[in-house]
Simulated scan of single mutants.
Amino acid sequence: MKSKTEFKHEALLDPADIQDLLKSISKGLGKGRLEFSDDKGTLSLDPQGLLYLKVTASEEDDRQQFDIKVRWEKKPKALSKKPPKIES
């Protein structure tokens, strides 16, 4: 059975506070451990190996935004290290 644990937090912050949060995320990635917490709970993540990164930015009318998405597999799939044989 698959399980899903989620941490979600929304707030209005100034750019300096967001910069501090991004620095904390960067530091956690370097250590291989991220811990997200607030008064509703805690979620610990262990990023390791190659990570998938997606960065998007957009502008519409008076709204601008950017999103950063990082994901990884807890148990990466074993892939062959040999190239396939292709005949022509």
Score class of each variant (00 low, 15 high):
Leu45Gln: 02
Gln19Tyr: 09
Ser26Leu: 05
Leu12Met: 12
Val70Arg: 05
Lys2Cys: 11
Phe66Ala: 14
Tyr52Val: 10
Ala11Glu: 06
Leu79Asp: 15
Glu10Val: 06
Lys2Gly: 10
Pro83Met: 04
Gly30His: 05
Glu73Trp: 11
Val70Met: 01
Lys81Ile: 03
Pro15Glu: 04
Lys8Gln: 11
Arg63Cys: 11
His9Trp: 05
Glu59Pro: 02
Pro84Gly: 05
Leu43Pro: 03
Lys40Ile: 09
Val70Gln: 04
Glu10Cys: 06
Ile68Tyr: 00
Asp61Cys: 03
Lys81Ala: 04
Trp72Lys: 00
Phe36Gln: 02
Leu12Arg: 15
Ser44Thr: 06
Thr56Ser: 07
Lys4Thr: 12
Gly41Leu: 02
Val70Cys: 01
Arg63Glu: 12
Pro76Lys: 01
Leu13Trp: 09
Leu34Glu: 01
Asp46Glu: 15
Ile68Arg: 06
Ser37Phe: 10
Ile18Leu: 07
Arg63His: 15
Pro83Ala: 06
Ser3Asp: 12
Ile86Gly: 12
Thr5Gln: 15
Ser3Gly: 13
Leu51Asp: 02
Asp67Trp: 07
Ala11Asp: 08
Leu13Ala: 08
Glu6Cys: 04
Pro15Val: 09
Glu59Val: 14
Leu21Gln: 11
Leu45Lys: 05
Asp14Lys: 13
Arg63Gly: 11
Glu59Arg: 14
Leu45Asp: 00
Val70Phe: 03
Lys54Asn: 08
Leu21Ala: 13
Lys81Phe: 05
Glu59Met: 11
Thr42Lys: 12
Ser44Ala: 15
Tyr52Ile: 09
Gly28Tyr: 01
Gly30Pro: 01
Asp38Tyr: 00
Trp72Thr: 04
Trp72Asp: 00
Asp46Pro: 06
Pro83Gln: 05
Ser44Glu: 08
Gln48Ser: 13
Leu79Glu: 13
Ser88Leu: 14
Pro47Ser: 01
Thr5Lys: 15
Leu45Ala: 07
Ser58Trp: 12
Leu34Asn: 00
Lys81Glu: 09
Lys40Met: 06
Ala11Tyr: 01
Arg63Gln: 11
Gly30Ile: 03
Gln48Thr: 13
Gly32Leu: 01
Lys8Trp: 06
Gly28Gln: 01
Leu21Thr: 09
Ile18Phe: 06
Glu6His: 05
Lys23Asp: 15
Phe36Thr: 02
Ala78Asp: 14
Pro47Lys: 01
Lys81Val: 07
Ile25Trp: 00
Leu45Met: 10
Ile25Asn: 00
Gly49Phe: 03
Glu10Ala: 04
Asp67Tyr: 04
Lys81Ser: 09
Met1Gly: 12
Glu87Lys: 10
His9Tyr: 11
Leu50Ile: 05
Lys2Trp: 06
Leu43Trp: 00
Pro83Phe: 04
Asp67Gly: 11
Gly32Ala: 03
Glu60Ala: 09
Ala11Phe: 02
Asp62Phe: 10
Lys4Arg: 13
Glu35Tyr: 04
Asp67Met: 08
Val55Gln: 07
Pro83Ile: 00
Lys8Ile: 05
Gly30Cys: 06
Arg71His: 12
Lys31Cys: 00
Ala78Trp: 13
Gly28Ser: 00
Ser58His: 14
Asp62Tyr: 06
Leu51Glu: 05
Lys81Leu: 08
Ser58Arg: 14
Asp46Cys: 11
Leu34Asp: 01
Lys75Ile: 14
Gln48Phe: 13
Leu79Ile: 14
Leu29Thr: 00
Pro84Trp: 10
Lys75Pro: 07
Lys75Ala: 14
Leu53Gln: 14
Phe36Tyr: 07
Lys54Thr: 11
Gly32Asn: 04
Pro83Tyr: 03
